[in-house]
Structures are given as C-alpha cells and as structure tokens.
C-alpha cells in the first residue's frame, strides 16, 4: 500500500523534496516508516527521535498506518 510522507524544515533537505510516496506493506507502523526513511536517506538517522503526525494527529511509533495515510515530518526549528 501507499503512504505519503510530507516534510517540513530541514527534513525537506534530507528527502530533497516536499513529499515522497512510500510503498509499504499492510500493518506497517510509524516506527517502521522511520526505519525505512533512515534506510533510504541515511541523514535521517539524526531525526529518528522525531514524533510524526499521521493525518494531522501526532502519534507514537507503534501507531499502525493505513492505505493513503499522510505522514507529516516536522523537525523543530529554532529561528526567531
């Protein structure tokens, strides 16, 4: 199944795009998505502690994804 990962801030630089579509198997968790991102983009290793949001809700790593879910990746930004 397909999920879309949408990136903000420095995460855009890492995936080199605003969003990326991932092909994943049924029952995949948010934690699995992080592993896949680290595998595809090694620099993402520095962001594994990030909390991800799925369909506009912040969720924990054990959250299970569904087809066409939208995963949002927001690293903290410090600027002011």
């Amino acid at each position: 199944m397909k999920v879309e990962v949408i990136a903000f801030g420095i995460a855009k630089d890492i995936i080199n795009a605003k969003s990326v579509n991932l092909e994943v198997s049924e029952g995949v968790t948010v934690g699995n998505i992080k592993e896949k991102l680290v595998n595809d983009y090694p620099a993402f290793n520095a962001l594994v502690s990030l909390k991800l949001a799925v369909n506009a809700e912040y969720v924990e790593d054990h959250h299970i994804l569904n087809e066409n879910d939208e995963v949002v990746l927001i690293p903290p930004v410090s600027g002011g």
Binding site: I10, A46, S49, L50, K51, Y58, P75, P76, V77, S78
Partner: peptide, 13 residues
C-alpha cells in the same frame, strides 16, 4: 511535539 532535540546541525538558525 518535540520530546528530544535532534543534534544541533539538524536545527539551523
């Protein structure tokens, strides 16, 4: 939202 800070180089000013 941000339980743990990422390494400083991931947080550009």
């Amino acid at each position: 939202i941000f339980p743990d800070p990422p390494p400083p180089e991931m947080v550009p000013s």
